[in-house]
Each structure stands twice: as C-alpha cells, then as structure tokens.
Amino acid sequence: MFRFLVPLVLAVSMSTAVAAAPVDDQSRRPRDNDRRERQVEAAPQRVDLGDVVRRVASGRQGRMLGVSPRGDVVVVRWEYPGGRVADITVDGRSGRILGER
C-alpha cells in the first residue's frame, strides 16, 4: 500500500509547489490593469471637441467644415461667408484659440 501512496503524495506536493511559484512571482509585478490605470491618470486632460467647436463658433459667422485632433492641438476648418476657408488652431488641453491660417 505504501508503494502506491508515496509516489502519489510526492506528485501532489510537487505539482502544488510548481503551481504556487508563478502566483508569488506575479504578486511582485504590477498587473497590466494597474499599469493602464496609471497611464490614464498621467495622461493630460483633453478638451471636449464639442466645446472646441462652440468656442470657435462663438462670435464668428460662417460654418464648421470639420474638426481634427492633431497631437496637442485641435484644428477646426471654418468657412466664412463669401467662401474663404481657414484652419483655426485650438490648444487641446486648455481650449484656448491659438491662431488662424
């Protein structure tokens, strides 16, 4: 009887030790979700594109043709009465209008 019991006990104890090792290793490393949460917290706040369009449209005649986020700025393509088209550059963090071309 002991001939069958000893190998069984050894096999169970070895598989338990092997299964426990990766868990201990993983507990030392930050989880992927934790890393993603830290990246999101560190990312700068971006202004809402709707707010950017409202700010550009305020006091301007004409219509918006399109809006395009480009890195740290947002570019709003605007058509004035008479057909002149301009690109209005807005700071993507503060929402402040930087210029017009």
Rank of each mutant, 00 (worst) to 15 (best):
F2W: 11
R3Y: 09
L5P: 00
L5D: 07
V6H: 00
P7V: 04
P7C: 01
L8E: 03
L8S: 04
V9W: 09
L10G: 12
A11P: 00
V12R: 00
M14D: 06
S15I: 08
T16G: 12
A17R: 04
A17P: 07
V18E: 09
V18Y: 13
A19K: 04
A21L: 15
A21V: 14
A21M: 07
P22N: 12
V23W: 11
V23P: 02
V23E: 10
D25K: 05
D25H: 02
D25W: 05
D25A: 13
Q26E: 12
R28I: 06
P30L: 13
P30F: 07
P30R: 09
P30S: 11
R31M: 10
D32A: 14
N33P: 06
D34R: 10
D34A: 15
R35L: 14
R36F: 08
R36M: 09
R36S: 07
E37F: 07
E37L: 14
Q39S: 08
Q39K: 06
E41Y: 02
E41S: 07
A42E: 06
A43I: 00
A43Q: 06
P44A: 06
Q45Y: 12
Q45L: 15
R46Q: 08
V47E: 13
V47R: 14
D48H: 08
D48V: 02
L49A: 13
G50P: 02
G50Q: 03
R55W: 03
R55S: 14
V56N: 10
V56G: 11
A57H: 06
A57P: 04
G59E: 09
M64D: 09
L65P: 12
V67R: 02
V67W: 02
S68F: 11
S68M: 12
S68V: 04
S68D: 15
S68W: 09
S68C: 04
D72L: 02
V73F: 02
V74L: 04
V74F: 03
V75M: 08
V75S: 06
V76F: 11
W78T: 00
W78Q: 05
E79A: 11
E79H: 05
E79D: 07
Y80G: 03
P81G: 13
G83S: 07
R84Q: 14
R84Y: 11
D87P: 06
T89P: 02
D91Q: 01
D91I: 00
D91L: 01
R93W: 01
R93G: 01
S94T: 12
G95V: 01
I97P: 05
I97F: 02
L98Y: 01
L98Q: 05
R101Y: 01
